[in-house]
Amino acid sequence: MKRYYWFVPILFVLCACGGNAVAPALGVAPAPHPDRRSSWISPELERTQAPLLFVSDAGTADVYIYNVKTLKVVGTITGFAQPQGECSDNKGNVWVTDASGGTVYELSHRGHLENELVQKGATPVGCTWDPTTGNLAVMSLLGVPSQSGGVLVFPKGVGTPTLYTNSKQYFYNFGDYDAGGNLFFDGRDANGNFMLSELPKGKSSAHTVALTGGTIYFPGMVQWDAAKQDFIVGDQSCGNLYASCVYSVKIAGNTASITGETKLQNSAGGQLCDLVQGVLFNKELLGSDNDFCGSTPSATYIWPYPGGGAPTRYNGKTDSVPVGAAISR
């Protein structure tokens, strides 16, 4: 019952912003129960060089740091307002978008604050780091420059950003760069329909990429899969249901073709309720299920990719309303 109450205000916010989508939680509603705890970092985190999974939780307004191998929590960073999507660079730093106050926090591998990027009026919910330039692209769901969102690109991850938009897109969610430095990002138009856009490297505006081979109902993760040379694009409303899945999407010109679907199960064997953002790492997909559907507790999972199916590991003891995921190497 408690989880149902979570869901209602989130839908209300989405509808009030002009979108028609009836969609699962996006996680941009105010965090109802920030736990106001102090950050803690375990001795293991202070000395580890192992890859870590950072999970943002809009419910507790915290970021949990998991050991990827064990899915044990090795640190908790507190003090956020509405932590959303995440991304990381090749040094192990992780950016955490915070929809409240237009802030993006940069954390080190050990969870120390490295920088804060503040852009008033923005609603940052997703980000990605460009390995070809070192630039940081931040997806602002709404509010830039007026009511529609946009992509803010911070040179080298600092300083004053440049705003990029696709005039046909209204909501901006998640994105990633391909190997050539072209930025692809998803979102919705003003009517709530899924959109995929491309900001070609060096260009000043983005254009729509037509999606073929299937339908995505509500934008989820976007990540470049270097091994397969395609993108993983998530759907938070797979089959127009309260369910999540991810698709393999091949880009050719201005067309994006769905070439495969990966279904993801929760710890009870049911279909995942809401994977807002996952992250591909070493042939595994890592992410959390915001299970407002009520079948299992919200949890952080690891699934084989592209096989999907049952999780190989999970931790259901920590998450409240998990949203973003990023790997710190």
Binding site: E106, E114, N115, E116, V158
Partner: peptide, 11 residues
């Protein structure tokens, strides 16, 4: 105010 080590503005 706080200026994290990679920061470009006082927060």
């Amino acid at each position: 105010y706080y200026l994290p080590k990679r920061g470009a503005q006082l927060v």
